[in-house]
Design a protein around this nucleic acid. Sequence first.
DNA 1: GCCATAAAAGCACGACCGTTCGGCCGCCGC
DNA 2: GCGGCGGCCGAACGGTCGTGCTTTTATGGC
Lengths: 200, 200
Amino acid sequence: MGKGESTKTAILDEATELASLVGLGGLTIGTLAAATKLSKSGLYAHFASKEALQVQVLQHARDRFTDVVMRPTVAAPRGEPRVREFFDRWISWQSTAFGGGCIFVDAASEFDDQEGQVRDELVRAERDKLESLTLIIGTAVSEGHFREDVDPEQFAYELEGIVLAHHHARRLMRDGRAEERARRAFDRLVDGCRPIARSA
Amino acid sequence: MGKGESTKTAILDEATELASLVGLGGLTIGTLAAATKLSKSGLYAHFASKEALQVQVLQHARDRFTDVVMRPTVAAPRGEPRVREFFDRWISWQSTAFGGGCIFVDAASEFDDQEGQVRDELVRAERDKLESLTLIIGTAVSEGHFREDVDPEQFAYELEGIVLAHHHARRLMRDGRAEERARRAFDRLVDGCRPIARSA
DNA sequence: GCCATAAAAGCACGACCGTTCGGCCGCCGC
DNA sequence: GCGGCGGCCGAACGGTCGTGCTTTTATGGC
């Protein structure tokens, strides 16, 4: 890895951290340069524009998400355990991956009405995650861990809701029981999907 | 209502709309002045600082929330119907109250790490809403519509999750079935709370 | 150890930021 | 009908924004 490449990685690391505190839009070249001990122009030389920087920050975070959430998840046993693994890692990702809030959650509400490459990248990442999640849940159905009438997309929707509620309670309200509540909600969600030899 | 007061209301209306598009932090005096056809200084004269403006925008939106969600809700019959009314109005508030996203959701992730009056006001509003919601759910328990072992705070947490998932799916992903999914999730949540003469 | 090249710095730009201040205009009570 | 005053404006402040240049400094292959 050349010098330029390594500084760029360092920049993106710092940018991710900063963006989690002030938002992807609140991120400025000046403060980022100060944080990385570079001059504004020295830093800027690594990117074509601010928008390009923002997009690359998202991609950088996405790579990390793949490493610490997705990859270990698919290593877990198929079916419900894998769903559980995903949930566990997702929750802990939100708590530990950033100094501030999860940049995907933050950026989602910041850019949901602002057309552009940032929004596009955000949608791409979300669609990707949703697709993987749906697949994992579908497997839990085909393995017989979940009932046949469980709709994976609906399950994914509700799971995302729990994770968002967790983020909200934890970051804004500083609710110490946020994680415990999330786990309870998850258990309730899963329980409702188990085949209890009840109906057809 | 004096002249100054009416212009101030007009400013706050426009500011709410604008903030729902670009975020409360993305709101600038210049663009807001242009939108209201006032000069920067003429507009600024109504507020002590930008932070004060942001806080008052939140309070303004909170008043509207009280009018179109809270007040009609408490007019509904006690118990489950009232819970349902709250949910319905909350969902439709998110869809119709703003041109962009719900400013409370947007601002929550934008300011969750930025100490100050804006964050304080945000927490105050959320705590208020959560308290009312918990009360409403508690009533559904004491009315016998929900089981005795239903935890109102946990219910409120999960309900908030559904609403957040709805906002996310609708605004970022532009999922046309977002509302339908939210309703299904809500029904599942309520169903799980009904007394089915099952256990102790 | 030299030299081509990559990386970072220095400097400057136009635009816009939040904020202040002095002054103009039209509405009110007298 | 005149004086005072609230409401709004124009101009300007020091700063910071994103973005270009041109120059200096560091790096790595020979």
